[in-house]
Simulated assay, not measured.
Amino acid sequence: MTTLAAVAVAAATFFGMEFVAWFMHRFVLHGPLWFLHRSHHVRHPHRFERNDFFFLFYGALSMLLIVYGSATHDFRFWMGVGIATYGTLYFFVHDVLIHGRLRFWRKSRNTYLRALNMAHKMHHKTTGRDGSEEFGLLWVSPRYFLLALRRPAPTRTLRPGPKAAS
Score class of each variant (00 low, 15 high):
126 T>V: 11
17 M>F: 04
161 G>N: 11
42 V>T: 14
6 A>E: 12
121 K>P: 06
32 P>D: 09
92 F>M: 04
42 V>I: 14
73 H>Q: 11
5 A>T: 13
71 A>W: 06
103 R>H: 12
27 F>I: 03
126 T>G: 10
28 V>D: 01
8 A>V: 02
164 A>V: 07
9 V>S: 00
73 H>G: 06
4 L>R: 07
30 H>W: 05
104 F>Y: 07
43 R>F: 10
135 F>H: 08
28 V>Q: 01
96 V>W: 04
63 M>K: 15
71 A>P: 03
49 E>Y: 07
57 F>I: 09
65 L>D: 01
69 G>H: 00
94 H>K: 05
37 H>Q: 07
80 G>H: 02
84 A>G: 12
127 T>R: 14
107 K>S: 09
86 Y>K: 01
95 D>N: 07
98 I>D: 01
142 P>A: 11
69 G>E: 01
81 V>I: 10
91 F>G: 00
82 G>N: 01
19 F>R: 11
95 D>S: 09
80 G>Y: 02
27 F>T: 03
163 K>A: 10
93 V>G: 04
14 F>G: 00
1 M>D: 14
123 H>T: 05
20 V>S: 08
113 L>Y: 13
127 T>A: 11
88 T>Y: 05
104 F>P: 00
129 R>N: 12
21 A>R: 03
28 V>T: 05
23 F>Q: 01
40 H>C: 04
74 D>N: 10
50 R>S: 13
159 R>D: 15
118 M>G: 07
81 V>D: 00
143 R>I: 14
40 H>Y: 08
71 A>L: 03
28 V>H: 01
43 R>C: 04
68 Y>K: 06
7 V>R: 04
37 H>S: 08
38 R>W: 14
18 E>D: 09
50 R>E: 11
1 M>W: 09
27 F>K: 09
8 A>C: 01
11 A>N: 04
155 T>A: 10
27 F>L: 04
94 H>W: 09
74 D>V: 01
129 R>Q: 08
49 E>C: 15
159 R>S: 15
143 R>F: 06
134 E>M: 06
132 S>V: 15
90 Y>H: 11
30 H>Y: 02
32 P>F: 11
130 D>R: 14
18 E>K: 09
92 F>I: 02
125 K>Q: 10
141 S>M: 07
49 E>H: 12
109 R>L: 10
127 T>H: 13
24 M>N: 06
125 K>A: 10
97 L>W: 01
34 W>N: 08
66 I>M: 05
101 R>A: 08
22 W>M: 06
35 F>S: 15
59 G>M: 11
154 P>I: 07
80 G>M: 00
68 Y>W: 10
147 L>F: 12
136 G>L: 02
75 F>R: 03
54 F>K: 02
125 K>Y: 13
38 R>F: 13
84 A>K: 01
48 F>Y: 14
109 R>C: 09
13 T>L: 00
14 F>N: 00
88 T>G: 07
99 H>V: 00
51 N>Y: 13
34 W>P: 08
146 L>T: 15
24 M>S: 13
66 I>G: 04
56 L>P: 02
89 L>V: 03
19 F>K: 13
154 P>C: 04
164 A>Q: 14
151 R>K: 15
122 M>C: 07
135 F>A: 02
44 H>M: 12
12 A>N: 03
85 T>A: 15
159 R>K: 15
151 R>M: 15
133 E>F: 14
6 A>R: 03
98 I>C: 04
105 W>H: 08
129 R>D: 08
26 R>Y: 05
132 S>D: 11
78 W>P: 00
109 R>S: 11
39 S>D: 11
